[in-house]
Simulated assay, not measured.
Amino acid sequence: MLNKTNLAPVSFILSGVPGLEDMHVWISFPFCSMYVVAMVGNCGLLYLIRYEDSLHRPMYYFLAMLSFTDLVMCSSAIPKALSIFWFHLKEISFDGCLAQMFFVHTFTGMESGVLMLMALDRYVAICYPLRYSIILTNPVIGKVGLATSLRAVLLIIPLIFINKSQPYCRGNIISHTYCDQLSVATLSCGNIKVNVIYGLLVALFIGGFDILCITVSYTMILRAVVSLSSADARQKAFSTCTAHICAIVFSYSPAFFCFFSHRFGDHIIPLSCQIIVANIYLLLPPTMNPVVYGVKTKQIRDCVLRILSDCKDAKSHSI
């Protein structure tokens, strides 16, 4: 059914993973497991950072921003994917599709921005340790966090209106598990060059700028660490960056695959593989970030062990 004024469909049908419909249930198990780990892990991190005074420091405030971003990013798409896999609930309204597109692209942009801020945090902590608390005050953290969020929101909003203004007359079946910008644009019978070009510019502006800042930050960190005379000091400085480097790898590796496969690999990489990696892109960072930071960060480990010990003591006393 088409709206005669702008040829906008009443709803879209999300097909899931084309070609692997018979395996949807099996695909759902790892997706669901990763989503549960992501929800529990990130909610746990937010709880620790909120209530543990020892974690009220700039590094952990940025980690809280990352956890919140991860929660919204994976929750904007994965529950719908699971409903497709389990209950065949494939229909999504046109406005609901645009809303999902907004949240997915906005919070992936925020994820990149927060990783960039965390790299700057590590740069200040290692290169200017005596001025760390003076430079990264709570007002400064709030302002840079707000600026990063507004950047993503203001850049993605035009993309939503561009897609909303397109005429759609090539059916309403989206070959995906969620409303990705390019997947929706391909259903338009209008000129989608604006969608493609603007989407590319946004990706380059957000991803390119953030990667440049991360690269410069770690170049300066490497120079500062190499200049340290003590091997123990060098190892300690590097260890504070390990978790962040892992977070960068988990986030940008599937992001690069999705970016290049969407634009250059349609005839080389099967669509089913592209869609699975696109979902992994939304699931892998939220799943692994709490695990990595929990294992690699001593302060978080100590807080978790102390809480578990208190719970164990309380249980033994009650018995």
Rank of each mutant, 00 (worst) to 15 (best):
A237K: 07
V184S: 03
Y218T: 07
P286K: 12
N195I: 14
N279A: 08
P290Y: 05
N191L: 08
F62G: 13
L89Y: 05
P286T: 11
A77S: 15
V225Y: 01
A255H: 03
I27C: 04
P139K: 08
T69P: 02
P129N: 01
K143T: 11
P158A: 08
A278K: 01
L154E: 04
I156C: 07
I192W: 06
Y252R: 10
L212Q: 07
L130P: 00
N163F: 05
S183V: 07
L150N: 07
F31C: 13
S188N: 03
R223D: 04
I269W: 01
D70E: 08
A125R: 02
E52V: 08
R234L: 06
D232N: 14
A38L: 03
N42M: 08
G142I: 08
I84G: 03
R131A: 12
F68M: 11
C189P: 10
L45V: 10
S75K: 12
N163T: 06
K236P: 01
S28A: 15
C246D: 01
G113Q: 10
R263Q: 13
L228I: 09
S54F: 02
L159M: 15
V249D: 01
G44L: 12
C127G: 03
F161P: 11
T219R: 11
T242N: 00
S11K: 04
D313T: 15
T5H: 13
E111N: 11
A119I: 01
I211Y: 11
M34G: 04
R263T: 13
M116Y: 04
S93R: 10
C273E: 06
S318F: 07
N195G: 03
I78S: 02
Y51C: 13
S261E: 03
Y51Q: 03
Y218W: 08
C258R: 00
G171P: 03
G19C: 09
T5L: 15
M1R: 14
V196Y: 12
D310H: 15
M59G: 00
V291S: 01
T106E: 11
F205K: 06
F102N: 09
Q274I: 05
T5P: 02
V140R: 15
S251A: 14
M23D: 11
I211M: 10
I173L: 09
A152C: 10
A147Q: 04
Q235T: 08
I269T: 02
D53S: 15
L283G: 04
I307E: 10
M101F: 14
F103Q: 06
V37D: 00
L228S: 10
S75D: 08
F259N: 02
L7N: 12
F238A: 02
L89W: 04
D310A: 15
P129E: 04
I197V: 15
S229A: 05
V202Y: 07
I211F: 14
Q274S: 01
S76H: 07
G208L: 11
P129K: 05
L212F: 14
T106K: 03
